[in-house]
């Protein structure tokens, strides 16, 4: 019984995260309703700085990309989801809490350019600094 449960539930990770991410925590973090229409975008410092350098990078699917390449990627990702659900297309931004807003603003602008307006700042549910 248990065996079958876990066999069904297990989903192999399809893309490896190549950046170090310590997500921020927020008290108002809500569970994402529809995972099918969600794609992930990672921002952080590479796990292996010896190969990828120590600067903050943006990871789309499996590769490091520049913020300017986001619109093309969004187009590609939108094809993946059913046509009647394209309005619900959501980009979940998983970013390290220490990154600067400069790079995030760039990413946000590119997403606007690509007309991917629904975004989620991924965060752990938990105490934030504000609620001491």
């Amino acid at each position: 019984m248990l065996l079958f449960f876990f066999m069904v539930v297990t989903k192999m990770k399809n893309n490896e995260v190549k950046v170090l991410i310590t997500p921020p925590s927020a008290t108002e973090a809500a569970v994402l309703e529809n995972k099918q229409v969600t794609t992930y975008l990672y921002i952080g410092k590479p796990v292996r700085p010896d190969i990828y350098g120590s600067g903050v990078r943006v990871q789309l699917n499996d590769a490091f990309k520049e913020a300017s390449e986001i619109p093309a990627w969004v187009e590609e990702e939108k094809k993946r989801i059913p046509a009647h659900q394209t309005d619900f297309f959501t980009v979940s931004i998983k970013a390290d809490k220490t990154i600067k807003m400069g790079i995030l603003t760039e990413v946000k602008q590119s997403l606007r350019e690509a007309n991917a307006l629904k975004i989620v700042y991924s965060a752990n549910k938990g105490k934030s600094i504000g609620t001491k």
């Binding site: 927020a26 809500a30 994402l32 946000k108 629904k118 989620v120 991924s122 965060a123």
Partner: peptide
Amino acid sequence: DKGIAIKLP
């Protein structure tokens, strides 16, 4: 996956 949902203008 949890997070804060935002709608960009």
